[in-house]
Amino acid sequence: MPRSVIAIAGVELELFEQGEGPPILFLHNGGGFFPEQPFVSLLSARHRLIAPSHPGFGRSSLPDWIDSADDIAYVHLELMDRLGLAQADIVGCSIGGWIAAELATKSPERVRRLVLVGPEGVKIGPPDKLDIPDIYAMPGDELERISYHDPDIMQIDPSRLTDEELAIIVRNRETTALLVWEPYMHNPKLRHRLHRVTAPTLFLRGESDGLVSDAYLAGYARLLPNARVTTIKAAGHAPHVEQPDVFVRTVLAFLETGAVS
């Protein structure tokens, strides 16, 4: 997949592009973007897929001034300007969904349709209960268990990865912590801005997602004027990875026809 680097506001932004057709801006989750994952070729079969690595992820640099999803939304808006995209469909997963939601509140007219896959970003529940379980206060195997429908097939084997690949994994975790640590997994302002979003929006949730609950997504969706929620079976917090076929079929149906399965 062609990779390039574009300089925006002090960020050397790593950018993957593949396919032709209506543009989809894909905003990756905290794990990062890996072009070899099967959903990528499926999603770019008849679309122009544009997938930046967020600042601090992959091979994108992280300037001092960036420490929030809100900051990154501005970088990606500028990326759309540079690419000449007056409007695009946006698909964001987990914190990528949070960034997409931030972006859509800033410039609603730039978003044609919006897909948020297990997004964080708002506070829905009471103050004495975390909406998203504390991923930094649980053992790694517990985090894997609640993140995936089938944790066994999601294991990484460090011995099969280069030092650079491992460094990217570690750095992605680090930048995720920078963005989500406090307030935990949300921007208190975002819920009061979501009324501005004009794009029809689909919230997608893996049925086995132990991080983002049904109730959370239902509450999140109610904050947008035109949003629906649907689930994907046999998938956890990353349905695009665990069920790429169903994921892409669901996303493309919504983007191309507005249909929700």
């Binding site: 930094y136 206060a137 053992p139 790694g140 985090l143 570690v170 975790r173 680090e174 912590a177």
Partner: peptide
């Protein structure tokens, strides 16, 4: 446990 002893970002990459 490791998740308390090594939070992301505390130790260099």
């Amino acid at each position: 446990p490791p998740h308390f002893a090594n939070p992301p970002g505390y130790v260099p990459v």
